[in-house]
Every structure is written in structure tokens, then in C-alpha cells.
Design a protein around this nucleic acid. Structure first.
Lengths: 64, 64
DNA sequence: ACGCGATGTCAAGCACACTTGACAATGGCC
DNA sequence: GGCCATTGTCAAGTGTGCTTGACATCGCGT
């Protein structure tokens, strides 16, 4: 499951730590999700989508 | 995180086992999600939304 | 070249998503 | 009342989402 998090984060000139703090997870979690180690939980995905003003479908790409 | 799964499933006259088979999880998992025991994973949420022809935001209600 | 912030990554641990197998409770139908 | 499909729920196990702490590496500015 790909995502546009790194792209949207760097657009805003936020560090991984900045973003982590905004959505309430650890920096390592942001890094792991950006580098495709695992997918976020559903509530966490909602928080990210809300932060970037996107739908979950726009933020996460379902490549099955 | 509330969801409309039970409502949409019964509309279609599917059993929990029917739905489970369609999205590739166990019946107990469907039951647990309908009864609010836990939230589905993000890829699983995508499969459910796709099956019901809804967006994730329409299927899952973010009550934080 | 050096320092330093940002990023990538590892290990160990905890909580939860999901499994199979089993059984009790519900509810409609004969 | 009795049968049977459906649903709810428990236990025990596996895998993954997420944590903290630590350390290596990658720019980039000076």
C-alpha cells in the first residue's frame, strides 16, 4: 500500500519528527510508513488524511 | 471508530460468513469489527469499501 | 574537514489485528 | 417444542503496528 506522505510532508517543509508530533506517533513510525515497512492503522490513516486535507483514498494508493 | 458494515451486509442479505469469504478474512473477524471489538487494518478497510462501492470515509465514521 | 540536523535502521517489548477451533445464545421455521 | 442457520464469544496462537532507545549515515552550512 503506497502513500504520498513523504511528498506532502516535504512540500510543507516538515521533518519526520514534526509530522510525528502533529499526528501523535513516534518519528520511527513515520519513517517506517514512508519507507513502506508497514501500513498505518485505520484511525492513524484518518488522522493523516485529515491533517493533509485529503481523503484516505487520495493519500493511500491501493496497489493491492 | 464506528462503521456501517452490519447495515450494508444485512441490506444485501449476506451472513457474516458470506462477507468474510468475499473479503478474505475469518467470520470471527467480521463479527469483531461489526461489534466494535477492534478496527480493521487499512488494506482490509480498502477491500470492504471497494466491495460496498463506498469510500472509506463513507464506510467508517471517525468519531475519534 | 567538521558539526549538526535529518533520516534510516536495529533490537526488544507491548498491544492489537487476525487466525482456527469450539461452544453458547439467538431467532426463525416446521 | 425442536431444529438449524446465524450470531456472539472465548481461548490460544501468530504476525504486525507502534513504542523507546540507540546508533550509523546522509546532506548541508560554515
Amino acid at each position: 500500500m503506497k502513500n504520498r506522505i513523504k511528498e506532502l510532508r516535504t512540500e510543507r517543509a516538515w521533518t519526520q519528527a514534526d509530522l510525528a508530533q502533529r499526528v501523535g506517533v513516534s518519528r520511527q513510525t513515520i519513517n517506517a510508513i514512508e519507507t513502506g515497512k508497514f501500513d498505518p492503522s485505520l484511525p492513524f490513516a484518518f488522522r493523516l488524511a485529515k491533517l493533509f486535507n485529503l481523503t484516505i483514498e487520495e493519500l493511500f494508493l491501493d496497489d493491492q
